[in-house]
């Protein structure tokens, strides 16, 4: 199934490889086993001896890269996505915080037209634990196992997976979808992959208030007859309407996007929903 979503040995380039964060995460990904084949930058600076190219087109032509991780400033994310897709990249991961929402709308359209995949706008990335990661999910929380993980929040998913790993439960495929209102890959988009994957025995969903992604996931579970156990955590019970707490997507308007609407939709589809981390951990451990 990994191959259906992404091949563990897919050749990867890093856009913005020679910047401070670019360098750190490039070396971190390579050390974890990701097949990093080069990167782009306006400057020829050495990053672990990897080839540096001026453009995605040049990088793809020379390396055959099919995936890219873009580590560029907020207003440069959309151009980076467009450049990668035009060069033939099939999976783009963007990790930058602060991409404008209307840029994300344009990026979605570009990616969809090319039949490609985008994980972002702002996400710690994804991982097939023990094989590869695109982005910077922390190694201390990664471990091969049978849980499919999807998360809107990086830090909260680190915490949840760290506790699960300590109890012996690792992940089959972990996708950080990000906390942005408009994004490349939503919870429901991933459901068919997890359904078809024999290595995934259950799902752990790290959600939060705002938007309708959890509601859409519940609807997709019902429509697709998803039968694997689903454990969901939803953060933000204390949020006030009209006040953003960190994630632009975590904003309540009227009665839309509340813990109550998300819990109702997921529960109706057979998921178990928790408001405390440890309750979710114990439920997963109890099977």
């Amino acid at each position: 199934m990994h191959d259906a979503f992404i091949a563990p040995d897919v050749p990867v380039i890093v856009q913005g490889m020679t910047g401070r964060a670019g360098r750190t995460h490039t070396l971190g990904m390579r050390a974890y086993g990701t097949n990093i084949v080069g990167g782009t930058s306006p400057r020829d600076e050495d990053v672990g001896g990897l080839p540096v190219f001026r453009s995605c087109a040049a990088a793809v032509a020379a390396t055959g890269a099919l995936a890219s991780v873009a580590i560029v400033p907020p207003l440069a994310v959309l151009p980076a996505i467009v450049e990668a897709i035009d060069a033939g990249i099939k999976t783009v991961v963007t990790i930058t915080e602060g991409m404008p929402i209307h840029d994300a709308v344009a990026a979605r359209r570009t990616v969809a037209r090319a039949g490609a995949r985008w994980i972002g706008a702002s996400t710690p990335g994804m991982a097939i634990p023990g094989r590869m990661k695109l982005g910077f999910l922390p190694n201390v929380s990664l471990s091969p196992g049978n849980l499919g993980v999807m998360a809107k929040s990086g830090t909260l998913s680190y915490e949840v997976c760290h506790r699960l790993v300590a109890r012996g439960f690792g992940q089959s495929l972990w996708v950080g979808v990000g906390g942005d209102p408009v994004k490349g890959t939503r919870f429901a988009d991933m459901l068919p992959f997890y359904a078809a994957d024999p290595a995934t025995h259950a799902l752990v969903i790290v959600g939060e208030i705002g938007g309708d992604e959890e509601e859409a996931l519940g609807a997709a579970m019902l429509a697709q007859g998803f039968t694997k156990p689903v454990y969901a955590l939803i953060a933000g019970q204390a949020a006030r309407e009209g006040v953003t707490m960190g994630h632009a997507g975590a904003l309540i308007h009227g009665n839309v996007g509340t813990v109550a609407t998300k819990t109702a939709a997921l529960t109706a589809a057979g998921a178990r929903v928790f408001t405390r981390i440890q309750d979710l951990i114990e439920a997963v451990a109890a099977g």
Partner: peptide
């Protein structure tokens, strides 16, 4: 630090009947 974990920590305190001052 971290939006999601910070929000969750507030939920955890409220679930214990406490009054967190800030996010």
């Amino acid at each position: 630090t971290g939006a999601g974990l910070s929000m969750q920590l507030i939920d955890e305190l409220l679930a214990r009947g406490r009054r967190p001052y800030n996010f």
